[in-house]
Write a protein that binds this DNA or RNA. Structure first.
Lengths: 358, 358
DNA sequence: ATGGTTTCAGTAACCGTTCTCGAAAAACTT
DNA sequence: AAGTTTTTCGAGAACGGTTACTGAAACCAT
């Protein structure tokens, strides 16, 4: 036995894959034949086909994805990067990505960033190693100049390996940066929400969830301000409260506000439903009722909204994810300039708003 | 130029990866040197090191994960299979898996099954192609005999390639099936929940969420029945209502029950919080109040619970996911029999239960 | 029968890494 | 200065598949 003798593929821990070679041996054919039969590349003779299939069955063989991907032919995976999967919004978008990816028979891998721009950049690099068909970036981020510069470099690097970068629920990075963009009409939704309160006679409206530099939050507060201007209501910056888009933050913001003195507003518009849920709890604990004492409107129309009977702005969360995948794959097939789509939102009326009698 | 001349790695769409070879060429060293320097395997001469690093920088090179994985050395990925990511419970477990995987610098890929056993089996096979370090199966499933047989075959196949199968929130498949198991004390939690209602004077307790054959549901209903027996209360099978663990199902079950006639129970124990939220909405729409008219206890202690002031059973969701990853990696390092851990649960008292005056 | 197509299956190159050898260069002895 | 050890680096074989290219049957028409 010379040194070129085929050695068994044994790892340190004594494990062993079933390889295509073993299948071929058992079936009494060459590896090429097995490969071709499994990928259905050509019509093999029925006899060989069944021999091979039986060997596959008996050995319980599955092809090694990495070897396949390395060969360059099959690249069937989609990467999605979100803030966190426990946030209902991101979860729904991810769900949309999952189902669409599954329908197009793609594997889907999820990475989380905890909302940190640095970790997001690192995660994109990490995903890039995998050569996915698309890298989908979801949601809010603090887009400072350095972030933009680096992400735009990565976008080009991804384009170089034939991977699409998809910006999902966030605006484009720039005209020269190759990226598919699917976003919501955040400003329009916030405008509608605030207008609804204004048309119900509310003049002083508290806004919870200001986050300068975070694109989603910026877009929503813009809608809020525009509506105030459109109705000729006074814009008091003191009514814009800073906080992240989480339930406990809504609770904190409202709690602090109430501790400082009695409400100097008659309605609250929250950056999302979770903030609204937290704020509502703080109001109730303070003996104030919704909507009798304070009217509320949220944003998202996700599970907590129905439970607390919250009027809110509906966004097609799952559709966002599905569209992201669909557009990325379409663009990969057809080329051309990367598409840019804006999904609409609309108000969902529930019981958390009451007209204010002057 | 002969036919053996190195051809550029160009795909059909004209894309091109930056390979380690190009880096080596640019740095004026061999590919082996680049590989070793990047993986930090040995202390290269400072001069060569910086030459290589500069080339990597300039070409913006990242190593191809598949080639690496194929080589067999680095296998750093964890697969998790859940029902759906929009279910708060699964989302929290997945979050736990994510964070623990990230801490151990593993990539994490998520697959969803929609609760279908067949799709779960297919997903396991799919993941198996990737040769992950662990495949984590989360939650409820309809475990019939055929399912058990096939999953147990897959468990052995996974073991053969050095991958751990982790059963997370569900009982072992059998004594001979190699799998790490991390589960909740579902029966204990349900026992505590039901006991709490019984000790508050409730005798007829509606159970929402029966699903014969689904392990989690089975374990909870067992706790419910045991508590009834322990308190000497009558067990009326008519009080066990069938439905899946979703909000709209809770709504449906309660709605149908109420349509059939006035409540013949004074308390409701729901299989999870979402069912409770849905059921509560149906009760409210029917003019019944919680807890004045009907007491309620849920299971999970996830977001909806706090919003509807629901007394419920807390489960350490994220901890479950983290433990799953931790145990899998530990077991991979240390070997031995796969561990089996049961995480405790406890009652969280809120305002949805009121003592019943006889 | 004979030459020309098809069909079917095998040989071997290749994908982008890592890793084992072994050789060349540098550092250290005496 | 020559021999010995130690670094440092390069050549080339894997890893497990896919896919030209190629040759041998099997089929067909004349």
């Amino acid at each position: 036995m010379n040194s070129l003798a085929r050695k068994a593929n044994a790892s340190g821990d004594g494990t062993r894959h079933t390889t295509i070679r073993e299948v071929a041996e058992r079936a009494g054919v060459s590896v090429a034949t097995v490969s071709r039969i499994l990928s259905g590349t050509y019509p093999a003779a029925p006899a060989t086909r069944s021999k091979v299939m039986r060997a596959v069955e008996e050995l319980d063989y599955v092809a090694n994805h990495h070897a396949r991907a390395l060969q360059g032919t099959t690249r069937k995976s989609i990467a999605i990067i979100v803030n966190s999967v426990i946030s209902p919004h991101y979860a729904h978008v991810a769900q949309g990505v999952q189902t669409q990816a599954a329908e197009d028979s793609r594997l889907c891998q999820i990475g989380t960033t905890g909302g940190d721009a640095e970790r997001e950049l690192a995660m994109v690099q990490f995903m890039r190693e995998q050569h996915p068909e698309a890298v989908i970036l979801v949601g809010n981020v603090n887009a400072d100049a350095e972030y933009r510069a680096r992400m735009s470099r990565y976008a080009h690097a991804l384009a170089a390996i034939g991977s699409r970068l998809v910006l999902c629920g966030r605006p484009p990075l720039g005209p020269d940066v190759p990226a598919v963009v699917v976003e919501y009409d955040n400003t329009g939704g916030a405008f509608a929400a605030t207008s609804h309160l204004l048309s119900n006679g509310h003049k002083r409206i508290l806004y919870l969830g200001r986050r300068d530099g975070y694109t989603t939050a910026d877009a929503r507060i813009e809608g809020y301000r525009k509506a105030l201007a459109a109705y000729g209501a006074e814009h008091d910056p003191g009514l814009e409260v800073d906080g992240t888009f989480e339930r406990f933050e809504g609770y904190r913001m409202m709690k602090e506000r109430l501790a400082a003195g009695p409400p100097d507003y008659t309605a609250v518009f929250s950056g999302n439903d979770q903030i609204a849920a937290g704020a509502r709890q703080a109001l109730l604990e303070h003996g104030l009722r919704v909507p009798e004492d304070v009217s509320m409107v949220g944003f998202d129309d996700l599970p907590p909204a129905a439970d607390i009977d919250l009027t809110t702005v509906y966004q097609p969360h799952e559709e966002l994810g599905r569209t992201a995948v669909r557009l990325a794959l379409e663009h990969a097939r057809q080329g051309g300039p990367p598409p840019h789509t804006i999904l609409g939102t609309h108000l969902v009326l529930r019981g958390s708003v009451r007209p204010r009698m002057p």
